[in-house]
C-alpha cells in the first residue's frame, strides 16, 4: 500500500513538474522559433533599416516596418486612452459606490463581452463604428474620411479590451481590506477621499497590472482591427487616416506572398517584433508594479 502511495506521489510530482517546465519553456521556444524563421531577413538587412525605415517594397527587397509599428502603437495608445479611464471609474463605481446587485448583474455581462469572438467585434466595427466615424465624427473635425481609420481601430480595440481590464480591476478593488476603508472613513475622509487615498493607492500595482494586460491585448489583437483600420501603409498623425498594424500585416499576407524572396522571413520578423514588444510591455509593467509594491 505504501509503495503504491509513494509511486502515485512520484508520478503526480513528475507530471506537475513536466507541465510547469513546459509552460516555462513555451515562450522561449516561441521566441527561438520566430528568430530562426526571421534570421534570413535579420542577416540580410540592418536592424535599424528594418525597424525605422518607411520603405516597404517587398518586390525590391525593402522591408521597412516603421509604418506597421507606428499603426500598432497608435491604435493601442488610442484604445488605452479610450478604455482605461472608463474601466477604472466603472470598477470603482461597481465595487465602492454601486449596490452589490449591480455588480452581480455586471459580472456575467463582462464575461459575455470577453467571450465574444473578435471577428464579431470586427463586423460590429464595420457596420457601426466605420460609418459613424465617416459620417459623424470626421465631419465634426472638418475632415473627410472613409471611416476605415486608426480611430475606428482604436475604438473597436478599446471595446474589446474593456472586459479584460474591467474584470481585473474589479478583482483588484474587491481584495482591498474593508478594515483599511474603515480606517480612512473613521479618520474623517469622505467616500471619494477614501477611494482616492486608499482604494486607488493600495490597488495601484493591480491597476498597473490590468492596464498592462489591456495594452498587451490591444497590441496583439488582429482580426477586428484588420477589418476596420484600412490596411494602408501610412504614417499620419490624424486619427482619421488609415493604418496598417503589425498583426494585420501577418494575417493579410501569410501564405499568399511566399513567392517573393524573404517575404516569409519578413512576416516572421513582424511576428518576432510583436512578441518582443509585448514582452517589453510586460516587463515594463512588472517593473513598475514591483516598484509600487515597495511603497
Amino acid at each position: 500500500m505504501n509503495r503504491i502511495r509513494r509511486i502515485s506521489d512520484l508520478l503526480v510530482n513528475i507530471w506537475m513538474r513536466a507541465g510547469l517546465y513546459f509552460l516555462l519553456a513555451l515562450p522561449v521556444l516561441i521566441g527561438v522559433g520566430l528568430y530562426w524563421k526571421a534570421a534570413p531577413i535579420i542577416g540580410g538587412h540592418s536592424l535599424r533599416d528594418l525597424l525605422f525605415s518607411r520603405q516597404w517594397f517587398p518586390m525590391k527587397g525593402e522591408f521597412g516596418f516603421m509604418p506597421f509599428i507606428y499603426s500598432s502603437a497608435y491604435v493601442t495608445v488610442l484604445a488605452f486612452i479610450l478604455s482605461a479611464p472608463l474601466c477604472l471609474f466603472a470598477a470603482i463605481y461597481l465595487t465602492q459606490f454601486g449596490k452589490h446587485r449591480l455588480l452581480q448583474v455586471m459580472l456575467p455581462v463582462i464575461d459575455i463581452l470577453a467571450g465574444i469572438p473578435s471577428v464579431v467585434y470586427g463586423v460590429w466595427g464595420v457596420l457601426v463604428i466605420v460609418p459613424a466615424v465617416a459620417e459623424y465624427v470626421a465631419p465634426l473635425f472638418g475632415v473627410a474620411s472613409s471611416g476605415y481609420s486608426l480611430l475606428s481601430g482604436g475604438i473597436v480595440l478599446a471595446v474589446m479590451c474593456i472586459p479584460y481590464m474591467l474584470n481585473m480591476l474589479i478583482e483588484v478593488f474587491q481584495t482591498i481590506p474593508v478594515g483599511m476603508k474603515e480606517a480612512s472613513l473613521s479618520l474623517g475622509a469622505t467616500h471619494w477621499e477614501m477611494v482616492k487615498h486608499v482604494i486607488i493607492r493600495k490597488g495601484f500595482p493591480g491597476i498597473l497590472s490590468a492596464f498592462g494586460l489591456g495594452i498587451a491585448k490591444a497590441f496583439g489583437e488582429t482580426i477586428a482591427v484588420l477589418m476596420v483600420v484600412g490596411n494602408t501603409l501610412d504614417i499620419s498623425v490624424s486619427p482619421f487616416s488609415p493604418g496598417y498594424p503589425l498583426p494585420a500585416l501577418i494575417a493579410n499576407n501569410y501564405g499568399e506572398m511566399m513567392s517573393i524572396p524573404d517575404y516569409d522571413s519578413a512576416l516572421m520578423f513582424a511576428a518576432l517584433l510583436l512578441f518582443v514588444i509585448i514582452l517589453i510591455i510586460n516587463l515594463f509593467f512588472r517593473y513598475f508594479i514591483h516598484q509600487t509594491e515597495k511603497i
Partner: peptide
C-alpha cells in the same frame, strides 16, 4: 458625517495602516 466620525477614533482587530 466625516466630522462626526472624527469624534471617534477606531482601532480594529487587525491593524490597518494606510498604504503610506
Amino acid at each position: 458625517l466625516p466630522a462626526m466620525r472624527q469624534k471617534m477614533g477606531l482601532l480594529s482587530q487587525r491593524p490597518f495602516p494606510l498604504p503610506v
